[in-house]
Amino acid sequence: MSTVDVSSVSGWLRSYAEAISEHAAELTELDAAIGDADHGTNMNRGMQAVVAAIDGGDFADVAALLKKAGLTMVSTVGGASGPLYGTFLLRLGGALDGASDITAEKFGAALRAGVEGVVARGKAELGDKTMYDAWVPALDAYDAAVASGADLPAALQAAAAAAARGRDETTAMVARKGRASYLGERSAGHQDPGATSTTLLLESAAAALS
């Protein structure tokens, strides 16, 4: 029986920090091709700070932990990724505020609330070649899995796999948001770094929240 609690969510964020650290060079390389060569460095700095905040904190519930993680990302990452990932975690935490017994349904609704926060800030649409192109198929796959009776780990597995497909599809897209959009047609042929780090976030969730 899986549970979403302070311990497992801490484990998720720690494992995401490890994944970011491991893939930092790759994320920066993807960003160099169509952006400004700092996505891996910035995300790594932010997630290391999140780990330090978890180590130094005592959290009453999942909501408090996620809000702290979100504020830490906003305060340490910079660029567009800081406000976007920070807003995601803040909204995810906000949606889980006061929730006891976090079911697969509740967690899915909270993920969707987090992504709605990202869209409100970044104003991305499907096909813009952004992290949103990984989020949308992931949320849809998650909901479909839950609707057909899957538990939380299975739903997160489905979400992670769908995010990876969405990430792969960004390669062919022409960017319409962020620095990659300055390249116009030349942005096609490169995988989006934001969709890549989002896929890592969902893969970490699938591994840690099981």
Partner: peptide, 11 residues
């Protein structure tokens, strides 16, 4: 002052 080529943060 942000990091090199990275926006500063709201704080």
């Amino acid at each position: 002052a942000g990091e090199v080529f990275t926006s500063p943060v709201p704080d």
